[in-house]
């Protein structure tokens, strides 16, 4: 399994990436939505498979998480990638907005590794044989 971790905070990328690696994922990091789109474009151009999962922060420079999710949803070749917002934005209306834009799940910071694994389990994205 392959995950794209998109966050402008290096510390948060390390935390999320660490949890995912512990669950058996390989992880690619991006510091904002534009950089993540570049990864997807390059992967697709090289004939590779898009990541199984994208963990997407909301507030980032250059291109924020909502713009990224919207851009991915507009591209049929990337539809197989599950997108989970991972953000401090915690209002009801924001969760609704992110889901309407195409995010599949929503994780509000702070969270525990167990809660993170629970969400992946709901999405059917815990690699077989790994502890949930």
């Amino acid at each position: 399994m392959h995950a794209l971790v998109i966050d402008d905070s290096r510390a948060m990328r390390r935390i999320v990436g660490g949890i995912l690696k512990g669950l058996g994922y390989t992880v690619t990091e991006a510091g904002h939505g534009r950089e993540a789109l570049d990864v997807l474009v390059a992967t697709t151009a090289a004939g590779g498979a898009v990541p199984d999962l994208a963990c997407v922060d909301w507030n980032m420079p250059v291109m924020d998480g909502l713009e990224f999710v919207t851009a991915v949803r507009a591209q049929p070749a990337w539809r197989s990638m599950t997108m989970m917002m991972v953000t401090t934005e915690s209002e009801h209306a924001q969760v609704v907005r992110a889901l309407a834009a195409g995010a599949h799940e929503y994780m509000i910071k702070p969270f525990t590794p167990d809660a993170f694994a629970d969400k992946l389990s709901l999405l059917g994205l815990v690699p077989q044989g790994e502890p949930a």
Partner: peptide, 20 residues
């Protein structure tokens, strides 16, 4: 709490059945 709704509640059900 925020931590409790993070534990296994799918976001579509969260926004349909709970409010802040």
């Amino acid at each position: 709490s925020q931590m409790e709704v993070n534990r296994g509640l799918p976001a579509p059900l969260l926004v349909r059945h709970l409010t802040r």
